[in-house]
Design a protein around this nucleic acid. Sequence first.
DNA 1: GCTATATTTAGATAATTAGCTAAATATCTA
DNA 2: TAGATATTTAGCTAATTATCTAAATATAGC
Lengths: 88, 88
Amino acid sequence: MSFQQTFKALSDPTRREILDLLKSGKKSAGEIGEHFQMTGATISHHLSILKQANLITDEKSGKYIFYELNLTVFEEILSWIQSFQKEG
Amino acid sequence: MSFQQTFKALSDPTRREILDLLKSGKKSAGEIGEHFQMTGATISHHLSILKQANLITDEKSGKYIFYELNLTVFEEILSWIQSFQKEG
DNA sequence: GCTATATTTAGATAATTAGCTAAATATCTA
DNA sequence: TAGATATTTAGCTAATTATCTAAATATAGC
C-alpha cells in the first residue's frame, strides 16, 4: 500500500522480471514460474510481495490464480520520479 | 551503475529523503545529516550507495563534500516505468 | 605542527529477506 | 472419495543490510 512497499517490491530483479512478463497480459502463477529456475514457493512469495505493493492484482479461476499488472501504482512512481525533473 | 543498483538505492526511505532534500540544491554531507537522527557515519554510508547508483554526484570543496542530484539516471527509471504504461 | 571540524572507513550487531523443503489448502476429474 | 494438479503457508538458513562506535583521513586556522 505504501510508497515504501512499492519501492521495496521493485528492488528485486526477479520481481521486476515478473512485472515485465505481465506486460504481455495476465498469467497464472505456474506460467510465471516457468520462466524462472526457482521453486513455485519462491515465486509465490514474490507474487505476494508484488500484490501487497499493489503492483499486481490476482484473480482466481478454477485451479489457477491469474496475475495481472495494476497500473495505478506505476502512475504514482512516475509522478515521484518526475518531481525531480521539473525545476522548482 | 546497473539498473539493479539504482532500484536498491531507491528502496530505502532515508535515501529517498536525501534525494528529496537535494531537490533544493547541492548540500554538504553535514547539512544532509542534520535532517536525520542518525550518525554521520550512517548518512555517509547512504550517500555512498546513492553515489554508486549514480543518483548523486559529489564535489569536494575544502573541508566539505557537496552532494548534488544526478538527473540522468532518473530518466532511465522514468523510461522503465513508462514502458508499462504504453500498450503493446 | 597542533587542534578542531568534516567526512569516510572498518568492524560489529541486529533485523530483514530471498531462497529452499515440507506441509497445507483448494480445485478438478475419474 | 481418492488422486492429481496448482498454489500458498510455515519454518528454516544463508546472505544482505541499516545502524552503531571507534578509528582513520583530510582540511583549515592558529
